[in-house]
Design a binder for these strands. Structure first.
Lengths: 329, 329
DNA sequence: CAAACATGTGTAACCGGTTACATACATGTT
DNA sequence: AACATGTATGTAACCGGTTACACATGTTTG
């Protein structure tokens, strides 16, 4: 391995001067600079990041803690974060935790001993105290898709309540009289918010009936499928369905399909998230678009501000959502 | 930050002894061990991984270079790799390159200066010489979903040709007389192999016609859509379609749907990959299952063997594929 | 003309671990 | 008694960078 001392020797300058050239810091004469650059090229010298990190205290690496990269929400988040990161020479450590407390705890430890410069956390289950500990140790953290109201932990979320409202309003505009909701698990912040938004919209538009809600303990296709069947068994007059996310909307679509109920003729359907999936189904699913990429991007930018010691002025960033009208409504 | 010298002071032992306790190496008396463990606990000491890496030459980190985590093939790969990695205390750096040579080159540099212990590369475009350079520098590398026949670079692939054969055979068994193929870009190893497999199967079963192939320069939904339309315009008697992957199969399904052609009644359809998508469509898509998770797992295990200096006996691992019969055929 | 300041460079300590080597003592062997 | 071996521990060099500090020289400035 070529080291800075090799460059120092070949160029006839001291390691300090070489370091100054590499980092464009301090005073260096034109002659020295040239000799050193020549030596660097000749030896194909690349500074060792590990050594740099050890003395410089910065690793230019951030940790991304998510439940599962296979959940279609997260690849886009990861991509956004990595895009911002790579542009300025940062790298991203990928950590899947399956919403398992032990794994989360473990990864937070690992990331700290690896001296990452900051962590972005998207987790539904994580112990608030965990994050608070980091935060109080002045360890840069940003939270995604979740808000801790009791503290000032920077968070990026989208306007879930408003999204639900828009969804219900759209269904009403399309002529629906009896709108049902398939709600995701209440441990998840976004599910709660979407549920509350649905309730608010219904109350305001007098179509609220508690029986028209199916509470699910997960948010995958099967939960949408089960939820839809449950709702149809309870009430045959439903003509509009708002699913808590696209996966559940797809499940609902499958259930309706199986029963020979036509979408959008008999029942209109709206999902949430605008994952690529929702455009791919037949019929394609109307959905509320969360700016997923933007969430990731903002999260990373916020984290970088914190790492750079800038004062964060806005602890909670709420991003706008948008109706994407497709064939299902 | 608590350092090993703090532990040394508090326990009354030297740093060498503390290090021995941490690493369970060399001789340490029971007394010393106890005192040191007590001190570690009291100070909540965690060894600094950076310092460790600098002197120990190992970072317990691997790089994963992929085109795009948003392509549904890769989250599962990433997940598999991360699962194996985390189990033995390794972490994974995520690198998206968009099949862009410059980004690939850059990331390989970055990963080397970050002293990762090895790299897993899934790239269609990457310069063979790049990888060869790494390989010849004895830098641990494993390649996914691609084979370099001219060298001994360890690779994990699935049996693409055989998969095509199985797909065509299945369509014939279902009564198809005229089977078309929507082929992905030929720069991609898997596309070529699937195309060749299709050709072989057709020749053996006398249904091969060059006109029944649509060559696409990408493998997304839109390419399947376009390919299907192209084929239907050319020949209206097609009764079976084998798409080069699930995304294109979905595109084909959309095109058929738009034309009012019923699947599977009028035309039977088979995809490739068994991404979660293929089970979600309506009708669900029959596909050839690649053991994606297994590919990732094997890749990581192979990489670990190389890192540990074990002799790799099998340079190319080919994994079995399997027909997943669904509604589209 | 001396003081103040800008420019340029090198030495050596430091970051926080690992480990080669020196040393010391107890026990077993011949 | 002399020597080899196993156990236990500490000192200091080392990994490959950064940087505080010392020092030298040239240029302003009052």
């Amino acid at each position: 391995m070529v080291t800075i001392r090799d460059v120092s020797k070949l160029s006839g300058c001291s390691v300090a001067t070489v370091s100054r050239v590499i980092n464009k810091s301090g005073y260096v004469s034109a002659d020295a600079k040239q000799a050193i650059q020549k030596a660097i090229k000749e030896l194909n010298y690349k500074p060792n990041t590990i050594a740099r990190s050890l003395s410089g205290k910065k690793t230019y690496t951030v940790g991304l803690i998510i439940p599962d990269i296979m959940n279609p929400f997260f690849p886009e988040i990861a991509r956004a974060i990595e895009d911002v990161a790579s542009e300025i020479g940062y790298t991203v450590l990928l950590c899947n935790t399956d919403d398992n407390l032990q794994k989360e705890k473990n990864y937070i430890d690992v990331l700290q001993t690896k001296q990452v410069d900051g962590i972005i956390i998207a987790s539904y289950t994580i112990d608030e105290q965990q994050i608070l500990n980091l935060y109080q140790d002045r360890f840069p953290v940003v939270v995604l898709d979740r808000i801790f109201h009791s503290s000032n932990i920077p968070a990026i979320v989208s306007k879930n309540r408003e999204g639900s409202y828009i969804a219900v309003k759209h269904l009403i505009d399309q002529g629906c009289k009896k709108i049902a909701h398939i709600a995701g698990p209440f441990e998840v912040y976004a599910s709660r918010e979407r549920f509350v938004g649905f309730e608010e919209a219904c109350k305001k538009n007098t179509c609220y009936l508690p029986s028209l809600i199916s509470y699910q303990n997960g948010f995958h296709v099967s939960h949408g499928f089960d939820g839809m069947n449950e709702l149809l068994d309870k009430d045959s007059e439903i003509d509009g369905v708002f699913a808590g996310n696209d996966l559940m909307a797809l499940g609902a679509l499958k259930a309706l399909n199986k029963r020979g109920i036509s979408v959008p003729k008999d029942i209109k359907l709206v999902g949430f998230d605008n994952t690529s999936l929702s455009a791919m189904t037949i019929p394609s699913i109307t959905t509320i678009k969360q700016p997923i990429y933007e969430i990731g991007k903002r999260a990373m930018n916020t984290l970088l501000s914190i790492i750079d010691g800038k004062k964060v002025e806005k602890y909670v960033t709420e991003l706008d959502v948008e109706l994407i009208k497709r064939e299902s409504s």
